[in-house]
Design a protein around this nucleic acid. Structure first.
Lengths: 194, 194
DNA sequence: GTCTATATAACGATAGAC
DNA sequence: GTCTATCGTTATATAGAC
């Protein structure tokens, strides 16, 4: 029956202990600034005011922290994806994109880590649950079409959103200004009349 | 008179010794795979079959290698930028974009390092010559407009190109297929009739 | 231009006390 | 859940011979 709930989100995103949550939050901020490879466990421990050993008590390895951090951020997309899949037809894409843009703008500093960091990219490609989640995402984005044009278009729009929110050119824009422009240009690019 | 030549490229891009060139080439490939923070001098030395000390003889610090690598890759854009600046009016943008796309496709594995690696991003923001070069680039891309819309659009199109060429969705496409789709969607997005 | 050898520091990770 | 202390490894960087 409701063993997986209505979303079947593919992501664990289990509610974690307070200590684990603090580590993940601190790690994400440091990953965004220094990259995953440039962030040490010492830096994470210092950021939350504990020792390395305390961090290792919560996560056995550094990779586990990276996985947890990516899970937490990707889980934010689950409601948007659920809503889009509930909405069949051309409206589904518009529902997904406006919510994805909202999230990307609100979390702009974390986006580049999730989308472009080589360590995370490798993780997304190797970790089964992440793969399935990304497939769900791109199925809504591309639709049934699997041609070169549809895939290039999907790659462009997903990286355009992710890249634009972190771009120095728009660093001074407030969230609402950035959001409205992104929605407008994204709809134009995808020929969505709204 | 011609002290800077016709391009005034802002970039040194000085022809380097063969030993330095080999280091930079190996470093770029490793940066693309592991990120700058995840690449050690030992890895670079191993890749070209010498010891760390030999690498340090060519570059005093790791940062110097990163600067040289970024310089070499950005210098590839100089001819395209020169050509675009020579071509006034709306044709300038089309000239720049088609050449930038050619380069991005040909160098796809290096693009994410240059555009998204946090170490490189910081370098681009702090290093004066890089700043000036990027300003030149975005002047052609944006034009005289400095409004929010123009800047969001420029950020989207530059990251859409850079992100699309490295995206897993299009990893199986050959250079020519990827190139032609990118040119088509980019023109459509920018309302260039060609 | 490359090597061996080394200094010094930081890395990921673990053991055991509290 | 956090600590001190430590292991083994790797990091950046240097000195000096060839």
């Amino acid at each position: 029956m409701s063993s997986a709930g209505p979303s079947a989100s593919c992501l664990g995103a289990a509610p974690r202990s307070a200590a684990q949550a603090r580590i993940v939050i601190a790690a994400l901020a440091l990953f965004a600034e220094n990259g995953v490879g440039g962030t040490s466990l010492q830096m994470i421990a210092d950021a939350i005011g504990v020792t390395k050993a305390a961090v290792y008590h919560q996560f056995k390895t550094k990779e586990e922290i990276v996985v947890a951090a990516v899970e937490v951020e990707l889980a934010r997309l689950v409601p948007a994806l659920d809503a889009a899949e509930a909405e069949a037809g051309p409206r589904a894409l518009d529902v997904l994109l406006t919510q994805v843009i909202d999230l990307a703008v609100a979390r702009r500093r974390m986006v580049s880590t999730l989308e472009y960091d080589p360590v995370v990219v490798r993780l997304l490609a190797e970790h089964e649950p992440f793969q399935q989640f990304m497939q769900r995402l791109f199925r809504v984005l591309i639709g049934p079409d699997v041609g070169a044009a549809a895939r290039v278009r999907a790659a462009m729009i997903s990286t355009a959103i992710g890249g634009a929110v972190t771009h120095p050119l728009v660093a001074d824009l407030d969230d609402e200004a950035l959001r409205s422009q992104l929605v407008r240009f994204t709809r134009q690019f995808l020929d969505i009349t709204g």
